[in-house]
């Protein structure tokens, strides 16, 4: 990685990863992007969910919690968020069966874009 691939290209490349339901990226410049990887996640609902996730970052900071990595866990799905040093945040909506190794792979790739 680190080959000039854009974030959206990276998301498009990983759309279809088994167990991954949606991928989103939020940049400090207040631009955000979320792409559904399954018909069950309709864009309007997904965008609202992504906005709610993003808002969590500043409230974590306000409460002096780390923001490098956090996760909402639901019965069937988890939302894993990982922030790079430049503040850009990756969000992975994934089935609970998705392995930690696969999350680590996505995060490692994302860190090097």
């Amino acid at each position: 990685m680190g080959n000039g691939m854009s974030t959206q290209e990276w998301i498009a490349r990983n759309n279809g990863t088994p167990g991954v339901l949606a991928l989103g990226v939020y940049t400090p410049g207040k631009t955000s992007f979320i792409e559904s990887c399954t018909p069950n996640f309709v864009p309007a609902a997904l965008e609202k969910a992504w906005r709610a996730v993003i808002e969590t970052i500043s409230v974590l900071q306000l409460n002096r919690f780390p923001t490098a990595r956090f996760r909402f866990v639901y019965a069937q799905v988890f939302v894993h968020c990982e922030r790079r040093r430049d503040g850009t945040c990756l969000g992975v909506f994934a089935q609970r069966v998705l392995s930690e190794e696969e999350i680590d792979r996505l995060v490692t790739e994302f860190q090097s874009i």
Partner: peptide, 12 residues
């Protein structure tokens, strides 16, 4: 809000 409209199950 995250769960509204998405089939994610109950918040844990």
């Amino acid at each position: 809000q995250v769960a509204q409209g998405l089939p994610v199950g109950e918040f844990q």
